[in-house]
Amino acid sequence: MVPTLTVIQTAVLFRKLVGVGRRWWMAPLRVGVILLLCLGITFGFSDVAQAVPKASASATATRPAAAGATPVRAAAPTPALLPAMPPDMQRILDRGKLTVAVLGQDNAPFFMQTDEQLGGLDIQLARALADQLGVSLEITRSAQTFDQVVDTVYGQKADLAISKISRTLKRAQRVRFSRPYLRMRQGLLVNRLQMAEQTQGRSMVETIRDLRGQVGVIKGSSYVGFLKQKFPQATIVEYPTWEDIVEAVVRGDILAAYRDELEVKKVVRTRPDAALQLQTIALTDTQDSLAVVLPWGSAHLLAFVDQYLDTLTAQYTVDTVLDEYAAYWAAQSPPQP
């Protein structure tokens, strides 16, 4: 029953649609109109679809000319016709040497005179960059302070500087920094005896967080600001050189010295006889990262340096650097006072 019913229903529906009945002759006309509509829609879409290949075809039409031109230029022997190199790169290649600014005074293990030749972590990095560029290396050591090194680069008297320069926002206003090649933290060099006076039953960590007493920093260095910010209770004592501060801590004149952890750990390594008096502390939630300094215009050279630093397999840490140069200090320590 059901199939019969459906057949009948369909027939009725068909009749209603095409109008089979009184005006049966109208039926082919209606079918024709529907067909035409379908055809129109189909063509409309296919036209849009065809338009894209058409456009690409018109583009390829112009390409052969350009493709034809490139080989001609590349084949040209004169360098004037080379595709424009980034100007900062071009300058170095033209000169055939990479000029790197380094601080005038030695600062082991970053740059120091070893066996009639400059050595150290920063010098190694500069040599590697020059090798990668395929040019020779020239080191200028006219600068006497770290800020002067930055100025040398800013004045474009050097292509870049690798000279144990810390990334600071103040410097970053004038020059560009690469990504850090050595991530350090800030450190404290504490006189154990003075510290024992301060603890009063508290733990070392508690006492440091609430540090009171005299803390030595290098005059005019960024650590003056850090000290005010991190240890507001401490009394700031500014010294002209780091050696003076270390002496004062060893003698017990001041409670602590504040600088990056590498300098702090270097002290106990180079002066083991004072190690019983001194305690080194690394502040894990602070940072002091060293980076390559470039003029603000040298965007491409910066990208090159960053990429080179990315490809370095061995990431340096403070301890690996100290270990690597342990032999150097062992040789140096006897003449130390």
């Binding site: 070392m204 960590v205 440091i208 967080r209 991190k230 750990k265 106990v268 390594r269 002066r271 083991p272 006889d273 004072a274 190690a275 019983l276 305690q279 080194t280 502390i281 690394a282 502040l283 894990t284 939630d285 602070t286």
Partner: peptide
């Protein structure tokens, strides 16, 4: 003092702490 200091250094008495 140096021998003792080297021993102290070897034992890694360096303190790492957060502020």
């Amino acid at each position: 003092l140096q021998t003792l200091g080297v021993l102290v250094n070897q034992s890694g008495v360096d303190l790492e702490m957060a502020l």
